[in-house]
Design a protein around this nucleic acid. Structure first.
Lengths: 200, 200, 200, 200
DNA sequence: CATGAATGAGTATTCATTCAT
DNA sequence: TATGAATGAATACTCATTCAT
């Protein structure tokens, strides 16, 4: 049950812990392959091969291929439990507040997961649900943080909501944008831009 | 169900016949199916069946399955040739300018095409190219329009660029957002919000 | 649709007709293999191999494996259309009447079919239905023939029914009995035995 | 659902414990499943699951899957040791004699066993042997009993043999017939019918 | 005895693609 | 152009069986 890995440090050198168990290795491999090639175009045999386990073992843990995707999304997309603390919020600094929020954003977890979530929204209800929940959460937190950080605009709820939704959209899709245009949107600049609108 | 879409013209010049030709019917069917189920998960046989043509005919027009996708994207994603006219731009009304731009936006073409473009970015270089070109185009036009519409901010190029990129992001992904959260982002509100930031 | 073969003369020498078509060859092979090894234990690949057609073609004609069995049973178990003529019935000779009936009995069709019918009764509703219909038919005809052939017992309907059911049971299961005990029940003797009971 | 059947004794001698031991539970489950679904179509894992034992334990007791079937047939198909007593035979009452014989007939053991025996005749030599032995036994006993019960026909050995074989056929397959036609053959009526033939 | 992870050969089924007509 | 039978590589999934604990 203990899901060992955390992206960016999946198997660091000095790890004296034993090999991650087979189930984890399967999910690791699937995460990478689904992100690269997509769910449909990734044969289970390749997942097994890439994970270094026999083909049959994949089905031991995940009776259907779709269960690999579902487990992946359920176990790895929302694992980072953000403390509810909105201590990020610094009154008078909405831009910095948004940037700090983005840094600790759950979607910051594995870039592979982000690609999977967006690419496979239609593949399974579970993916769509997780992505939806994620989006709502970001909007909710951005809104909460902005309420504290932008005292001047606190009265204009509608404006705060648009700000939160706009920031969320940029944040949620930035990875996709990066793929498309080849250039990453500068989140800091967007945050400042939004702060401007709130300040006026 | 009627595949005679309002999304651009597919019919050959002199068409008064009721039935589009086979090739068109194949593309119509593929467009719908790829959007629904994805490229990989859509068998060519189903495209043929849905188009009401024999299986073999699909390969007569499109030697490889991928050619269906490529033709679809090449012929239907950018067909709406926006007049270069930035007559949309109304000096002093950046919000209205953005909204008008959005209304005539190429991506406003077939919703199915949008889903295909986003879902199949990684399936073929051609898709990625078209989507990239589309995105650049939107940013470019938004930027151009804003230059004219927001004379006050005209000097601050960096700010205009962030504004354009932000609006483009919201615009490009609004359909996706809609699916996820079940509620459409209010483009007008975002446009006004952006105008606020430009005005201050 | 024309089902060429009739067992015992599936491919006689002087047959100038071309090879039976692929579909027929598949059914021929399946009939033999299902009878030998049973439905479950017969891989579709072996059917194809035995029929001399590529694996995929089996699924071209029969989308699911069970469809092969169903087609087999539906098309080959009841094909022999017995003329309704009860001319078999010879008044005063119930024994001869039963024997003649047995000789033209539909189940006399392919011995392989008989083994399939009995072995796979539980495999699919269609098999059970065909076998049930066959049994009812035999009882019905035996009863009809006996009514005419055994005028002495014509008044004792109950006795005629028992006679018909008994004969049908022996007839229907004789192939199985043969397998089990290694010795065939002598149908003639049973017919005479039954005639005895009717005569007394 | 309660596997404590009336069909022979499975429990070890001193059993007062509520739970049969694992081996017995495995056989119980297999008996039910083989009868329902057939040997080939019943995975060992399902036997284990249905018996409430871990998968590995099945192979502890029965190294190969086929051993489960063999053990089942060997231990449960002939267990009811009929006393050799032909005290059933009542001179002058061949019908009653046959009916009494049928009531104590070994095949009266578990209906599930009967279906297994008939369905899996070809699966393993052991099954065929047991079924063959069973059939011979029935014929042998019916013959013996009829010799005593029908003194009038005692001289006509051939006729007695046909009578025995006919009755055995009806008896052995009545369960199958029941499934097929949905209506059970009336054994009493058949017995009387046979007695008639012997008496004339 | 008990347990369940591990293994890999086998199986039904799918599907892009070819091609004779 | 049309047509649909033919082909076989690929793929998800099954399952008997082994084995370390």
């Amino acid at each position: 049950m203990s899901r060992v890995s955390r992206w960016g440090r999946r198997r660091s050198a000095g790890d004296r812990a034993a090999d991650p168990d087979s189930r984890t290795r399967i999910l690791d491999a699937a995460e990478e392959l689904f992100a690269e090639t997509g769910y449909e175009a990734t044969p289970t045999a390749r997942i097994a091969g890439s994970a270094g386990v026999p083909k049959g073992l994949v089905f031991h843990y995940f009776p259907r291929k779709i269960d690999v995707l579902v487990a992946l999304v359920d176990e790895r997309a929302l694992v980072v439990e953000l403390p509810e603390s909105e201590s990020d919020a610094l009154p008078g600094d909405p831009a910095g507040t948004l940037v700090r929020l983005a840094r600790r954003f759950p979607l910051r977890a594995s870039p592979a997961m982000r690609r999977i979530l967006f690419r496979e929204v239609d593949t399974h209800r579970s993916v769509r649900d997780v992505l939806g929940r994620l989006n709502s959460e970001v909007v909710r937190r951005a809104l909460g943080a902005l309420k504290l950080a932008a005292p001047g605009a606190a009265g204009d709820m509608a404006r705060l909501e648009v700000a939160a939704a706009t920031f969320a959209a940029v944040l949620m899709y930035q990875e996709n944008l990066h793929q498309l245009t080849g250039q990453r949107v500068d989140l800091d600049a967007v945050a400042h831009f939004i702060a401007l609108a709130l300040g006026s």
